[in-house]
Design a protein around this nucleic acid. Structure first.
Lengths: 210, 210
DNA sequence: TTGAAAGTTGACACTTTGGTCAGCTTTTGT
DNA sequence: ACAAAAGCTGACCAAAGTGTCAACTTTCAA
């Protein structure tokens, strides 16, 4: 027999890999690549260490699988910066979507931040090229709006950095946000208040005054 | 003899501790607490590992010494949010100072970010209380400006988060900033461009229109 | 000059870690 | 029913890690 005797939905393999990835996201996010112990991932996923190694042949393989999984899930969230939209509407939706994503996927968000702070060692050339292209597309749209007189001439690249930074902050640096906002922990309505403050401030900052 | 036979400026001790701290900042910033190996700090500081342990009795002791050293050096930088100033001037100087500090102290900046992402495990209650008080003072000043009609009623806490996030980003997430700005690396004038974009956008966002 | 404190360090002890493996059990197409 | 593929895992290893220590050298106040 040539083909494997597998496949009714790949149940076991799929499930276990998902458990490992899920546990890995949490732990890599908190400890970074070098700080993470595979035994800890094994324990958190409820599998023996040797079983983890049955699915992944090294720590790096788990890590890069997670990074890939993570980048893939990002593109969906952020398709609001489109030329046919009005800037006010587009930025409002963009800010809201980013804050929502970052709130619901804190660990992923932190893992990415951690990877970058640690020097982006495991972001492939392809990954970085992809990020650059998405940025370029967004920048082009904003430049179009500026040319059309719908926006003040704000440098689009620095503008996007402001947006990314402001939205990521609440999840990546939650302990600081908690102290700054004097809340015991951040809840949905703190993110909503963040969305309105950021949106209102940025929109006044980039739109022509009526 | 009761007192030690030491002290003409504490030369050796001071110098070696400084070397260890300096090396530690770089490495802890890149690897996080758990990911950092003392042997690496020893090598980077040019001292044998056993000599590092002569000055610090554990990894944690080095790390907390660095955190303390770092928080102390922060208060200086940011005294521009003061009631007697006009908001426009104050925020402009604040943004400039923060970007300058973060550019000239990248490793410290990253180390702090790393510590927060990893859950602020080694920030003492006192450290966090201190951060909270500095924030409260700044918030009070902004509330004063709002009450005096010098500013639009923007939530001050979320406003400061926007400022921190936007300024920190360039150093903490430099690889992403580099890709977004399409530069091979960030130089002084990229930080200046950042300062003007952030300042202009934020000021339009928070000031009454003329 | 001298001796006590400070500083230095190679070698060591002990623990944790990433990763392997041989042999076991379970699943599944036929 | 059954064999082959898939899945599982306790036990193990070499390497790397933290922290210790005894013996050595350097420094410096008296």
């Amino acid at each position: 027999m040539v083909r494997a005797a597998r496949d009714p939905e790949e149940r076991i393999r799929e499930r276990n890999m998902r458990l490992i990835i899920k546990a890995g996201i949490e732990i890599f996010a908190r400890k970074g690549f070098d700080g993470t112990r595979i035994a800890e991932i094994a324990e958190a996923s409820g599998l023996p260490k040797a079983n983890v190694y049955y699915y992944f042949s090294s720590k790096e393989e788990i890590y890069t699988a997670i990074i890939a999984h993570l980048l893939a899930s990002w593109d969906d969230a952020l398709k609001y910066i489109a030329p046919e939209r009005e800037p006010a509407e587009a930025f409002k939706l963009y800010i809201k979507a980013k804050l929502e994503y970052t709130r619901k996927n804190m660990a992923e968000s932190r893992l990415f931040a951690s990877e970058i702070i640690q020097g982006a060692r495991f972001l492939s050339r392809k990954d970085r090229e992809h990020i650059r292209q998405v940025t370029d597309a967004h920048v082009a749209v904003v430049e179009g709006w500026i040319a059309a007189g719908k926006m003040l001439p704000v440098d689009p690249r620095h503008l996007f950095i402001m947006l990314w930074a402001s939205t990521q902050f609440y999840s990546d640096f939650e302990p600081v946000a908690v102290d700054a906002l004097k809340k015991p922990r951040l809840k949905a309505d703190d993110y909503e208040k963040a969305a309105t403050t950021i949106t209102e401030t940025i929109l006044r900052g980039i739109l022509r005054q009526p």
